[in-house]
């Protein structure tokens, strides 16, 4: 979902969600165990501005303002990577965050093409310009193994 990168999520909300899943799995039989698949969320209030984030914006290559206005300090920014939504950040617009979290879960196309309330006149993505990851990992792909036609297999690798 996020370029198959290993992620360290350093918000306490993630620790709580992981703990809930871990506690459930500790007391459940193997068939009833859950995978930890929560989409990351964090929030912070900075100088009166309520900032919330869903997904992993920092892996994005592009960003676009989908609702509101940056000069007014009230907006939704959607982050995309290779044509798919990977995250969204809201500034004083947190009521819309859940929606974008669900869009991330569905790997929705980026940039979004749907119509919403409070849409800016110019919905055009710009480069996100995040600094390169300090320890680059390779993107996931499929490798072909085996020599004999009966042994040839496509195998999914994440690194």
């Amino acid at each position: 979902m996020f370029g198959y990168q290993f992620l360290a999520l350093e918000h306490w909300g993630n620790a709580v969600t992981q703990a809930e899943v871990a506690a459930h799995n500790m007391i459940s039989s193997q068939a009833d165990r859950w995978p930890h698949l929560a989409v990351p969320v964090f929030w912070s209030t900075q100088f009166g501005t309520e900032i919330k984030s869903t997904g992993v914006p920092s892996v994005a290559d592009s960003v676009v303002i989908t609702q509101g206005s940056v000069p007014d300090r009230r907006f939704v920014a959607a982050y995309g990577r290779q044509g798919r939504l990977v995250g969204a950040v809201t500034f004083n617009q947190s009521k819309w965050l859940e929606f974008h979290g669900r869009q991330v879960e569905r790997a929705a196309p980026f940039p979004p093409t749907y119509q919403t309330v409070d849409q800016p006149a110019d919905v055009r993505p710009v480069p996100a310009e995040f600094p390169e990851a300090p320890i680059p990992t390779q993107a996931a792909t499929v490798v072909v193994t085996g020599h004999d036609p009966s042994e040839r297999r496509a195998e999914f690798v994440t690194r």
Binding site: Q67, V76, W96, F99, Q115, T116, V117
Partner: peptide, 10 residues
Amino acid sequence: VELLHDPRVS
């Protein structure tokens, strides 16, 4: 709940 929070709903 989803639709109450959906920006595509006016």
